[in-house]
Nucleic acid binder design. Structure first.
Lengths: 330, 330
DNA sequence: GTAAATTATGAAATCGATGACAGGTCAAGA
DNA sequence: TCTTGACCTGTCATCGATTTCATAATTTAC
């Protein structure tokens, strides 16, 4: 593992000159530049990353936080983010919050220690006020989450609209008793979606029942579980469900069919994310299409803009469009 | 962002003393230790990560390579690895090879630059000889992949056995014409699985046809595509398929049903990975259960053992068990 | 032909920590 | 009293790069 000193010695020049070659500074004679490059090649030298980072005060590392890395939506987000970051020579490390505030704060400490240059929050567990102090240490960007006042770039979907659209679709299909599943009440984004749901209901003078709203809907297993609960409801059951994700929808549908419901006859279900799974269940799943990879890529682009151009971080909300994709489950 | 010097000055001690407090060295008087800790707390000081890393020659960063981060199996692997690494205060960064040799070599350069302390290969794109030189720079571990001679810890599933078991199950169900889908022929692990498949066939004197073997089977869409190809086969079609993953199986099954096949009557399908999706298709998918999160955790444990205990890296193959889970698709 | 500007190079400080070494204090033992 | 060793603390070199500043060499301008 050769160092810049050894290269310098072999070339009979100073380390500054080697450094200049490395960083494409002008004011290096063509002859020396070629010689240095030759030796670098010959010795298979690469600059020591930590040393360079210490001097230039950057780690070329970004962090993404997600609740869990194995949810298809977040896996897709990680894919997009990693892909884009790599193009700009940044690395990406993945943090899972598991819905836990402490884990998120641990992540913030990485920013404080300059272990990472910036953070993409794919989830938000803490109150914003607990996050805000870390903004001094480096840029933070919110992605797939929303906050009313946070002074950072926010990239998210138009959740109100998608919620409204989904529910209106169910209403157009003749449903009046519509339930709602969502991941966590802690998420502003999910609450916007819920507002869309509620707004569509009230615009059409439809009833709204507390017990038709299901929290903690994340995975296929959650879908199975929730359907069981619906089945055993003593009072009125919903005839349609707007589910938090396609995974949940798949679980709901499967269990509904198992329990003898006809889908969409007795129970219509609409998913979210428009993942491939929508196409392989029976019936196939009507869903809300979102462009997750694009969201991830854009997040990196914005974050790096702040980082490389030293732009001050400012609040800037970008709503990504969503689209209804109708299939058999509604 | 205070430094150790500022803390030292405020405490009226030397930086070494602060460093000793930081690193829990003995030989610091209780009085000073308390005072230093108080000031550290008060100033909200945390050690500069790059500076420490430069001195101690470690980055506390591990890298995992996967073909794509959004495949459920690899997403699960990333989850397990991240989880375990976090417990040992290591960070994990994710690299996607997209089945491309160059990307994998880029990753190796990170090891060479000491940007990461070690690498977990969840995929292997290059010839081992091209990877081997980097072993001098830091530990590499193979996870979910196999190689005949590589002198590194290898954690993988008993793919031969699982392949054999899956096919035997199909044979026991009365099938004689059995096809095989797999991800990539470049993977030793997948080739072991294929050997299991071939071995089961020959042990039962069953035919083997080149055109029943499908490469590039990774996602749901691949499953849909392959089923179309099978449907249009001019000659004899398989009556059972051993598919590379549950995703592929789901696609195969859906398209088979769409095309009027009865599953498992006309076509039996067995998946791999035993993911939740197995439970929501119609019919549900018989699969091979594997413990992916456990695999990821174990990989980190082994790698860190080499790292912290300075153990020399040595070849050590660990085969994780797999289990057949029978459902409706066979 | 000299001043000024441009180009090229090296010495040394610096980033923020760690750790080898030296030196000092103090109590126990000879 | 003197030695010995345990305990405590500070000085300074170091990790491997970048960068400022000084200076030398060369070209351009007048």
């Amino acid at each position: 593992m050769p160092t810049i000193q050894e290269i310098a010695k072999l070339c009979k020049v100073s380390t500054s000159t080697v450094s200049r070659v490395l960083n494409n500074h002008p004011y290096v004679s063509e002859k020396i530049r070629r010689e240095v490059l030759r030796v670098i090649e010959e010795m298979n030298y690469t600059p020591h990353f930590l040393a360079r980072g210490l001097r230039t005060n950057s780690s070329k590392l970004l962090a993404v936080s997600v609740p869990k890395a194995d949810h298809p939506f977040f896996a897709g987000l990680i894919k997009g983010i990693s892909l884009q970051a790599l193009e700009f020579n940044y690395k990406v490390c993945v943090f899972q919050t598991f819905y836990c505030k402490e884990n998120e704060l641990e992540l913030m400490k990485l920013l404080q220690n300059r272990e990472v240059d910036g953070i993409i929050l794919g989830a938000l567990e803490n109150m914003w006020d607990d996050i805000a102090p870390y903004l001094k240490r480096g840029p933070i960007l919110m992605c797939n989450e929303f906050h009313e006042t946070a002074p950072v770039p926010i990239l998210c979907y138009n959740e109100f609209e998608s919620g409204y659209t989904a529910v209106r679709h169910l209403i157009e299909r003749g449903h009046r008793d519509i339930g709602f599943c969502f991941d966590t009440a802690n998420s502003e984004a999910q609450n916007m979606r819920k507002k869309g749901y509620l707004s569509a209901l009230s615009d059409h003078n439809l009833p709204y029942r507390e017990e038709w709203i299901f929290d903690g809907a994340f995975s296929i297993l959650d879908g199975l579980r929730i359907m069981n609960r619906i089945h055993h409801m003593p009072e009125k059951k919903p005839t349609a469900l707007f589910s938090g994700s396609d995974q949940v929808a798949a679980g709901l549908i499967k269990q509904a069919v198992n329990l003898g419901y006809s889908v969409p006859g007795d129970l219509a279900v609409i998913g979210y994310d428009n993942q491939p799974i929508c196409r392989v269940t029976t019936p196939t799943i009507t869903s809300i299409d979102i462009k997750v990879e694009q969201l991830g890529r854009e997040a990196v682009t914005r974050l790096l803009a702040c980082l490389t151009e030293e732009l001050p971080l400012k609040r800037e909300v970008t709503l990504f469009p969503t689209a209804l994709v109708v299939r058999e489950s509604t």
